[in-house]
Design a protein around this nucleic acid. Structure first.
Lengths: 190, 190
DNA sequence: ACCTGAACACCGTTCAAGT
DNA sequence: ACCTGAACACCGTTCAAGT
């Protein structure tokens, strides 16, 4: 072997990664407001100023978390769409994947769609990851260029997002999201 | 007259009210995160500790703003529903009023539906105002007890919320929300 | 190159003291 | 009753200094 790893090295192995994980943990445990650069650094075991070697601002760490989230969401949604030949089936499947992601990883979803990250044109990689995730939906919508299906596809996506938000905020007590009957409009069931 | 009003009295006229207005202003101008008890007090012209005579915590001020918002939303939504005899027309109208409120007063909407206010059973008056606003929708949904209309009503509400969120976060570029054609499912148009 | 110590301006919250 | 002064613990951010 080239070198022996020390027990607690002066240099953290992958501080950037560790900080992202700690941030997500904090959001999951105590909510977006509880996330603090200093607390994240504390959990990782480094001085809080060390974080600035990897993220220029607190929100840049949050943006990094969000970006990863959009990559994951994009993959899931793309996989869901790929399983269907029929256009509207694919739209419904992507909406289902969207909802499943939001309910399955609420902390990530809140960082991604929460209010902290203003979309001001800075953070181009975050923007790209977001666009990429939503592109699946938009491509499907674009393919449905006849008026009713296009509107319906957009509506389904909007509804999926609304359901995710309302459910996570406990404004709705529906337990199931289903868009399984092709002949009827998309619906929630309880 | 009983007494002469001083120019700048030691006691603020209605500090609770003024703080709510200042808070909403701050959120509108710089976003939820920019809102600060100290800054709100600064704008109103009092020592920051004075706020604690009216609100026990920072979030209680936010909760008061949200509560007012729910009262306004409840009124608008109720008025919209009252203008229609047909059940589904009424559902559509309430959804439209919901969207109009969110787009017309984004700051208020964000405080109301944002992440700061955890619904933990404290703040019963806020809870009541929220329930009251949503009750209009739920009553309409309850009246539509046959399966398809019930689901469709719930779906419309969910979609209205999703549209408001996506639009405010600039994730969607649709300019119009319409559910005007009774025969078709609720749809967005661009 | 990567991390720490120390400092600055700011915040939420408290409490004794003023009017 | 309502407000201020002063203080405490905390945070984001910076920067010179350590390894």
């Amino acid at each position: 072997v080239k070198a022996v790893r020390k027990k607690r090295p002066y240099h953290h192995g992958d501080l950037a990664r560790a900080l992202k994980d700690a941030a997500l943990e904090l959001v999951a445990e105590e909510g977006l407001d509880a996330f603090t650069l200093r607390e994240a650094a504390r959990r990782v075991g480094v001085h809080h100023a060390a974080a600035y070697r990897h993220y220029a601002k607190k929100d840049d760490l949050l943006a990094a978390v969000a970006e990863e989230g959009f990559v994951v969401l994009g993959d899931r949604v793309r996989a869901a769409a790929a399983r269907h030949d029929d256009l509207m089936d694919a739209v419904r499947a992507t909406a289902g994947a969207y909802v499943a992601f939001a309910l399955g990883e609420p902390a990530r979803f809140r960082v991604m769609l929460g209010p902290r990250l203003n979309r001001d044109g800075s953070r181009p990689t975050l923007e790209a990851a977001g666009q990429n995730a939503f592109k699946v939906l938009l491509d499907l919508v674009a393919r449905a260029d006849l008026d009713p299906p296009r509107e319906r596809a957009l509506s389904i996506w909007t509804m999926a997002h609304g359901f995710a938000e309302l459910y996570l905020r406990e404004r709705i007590r529906a337990r199931r999201w289903t868009t399984s009957r092709p002949s009827s409009p998309p619906c929630l069931t309880e």
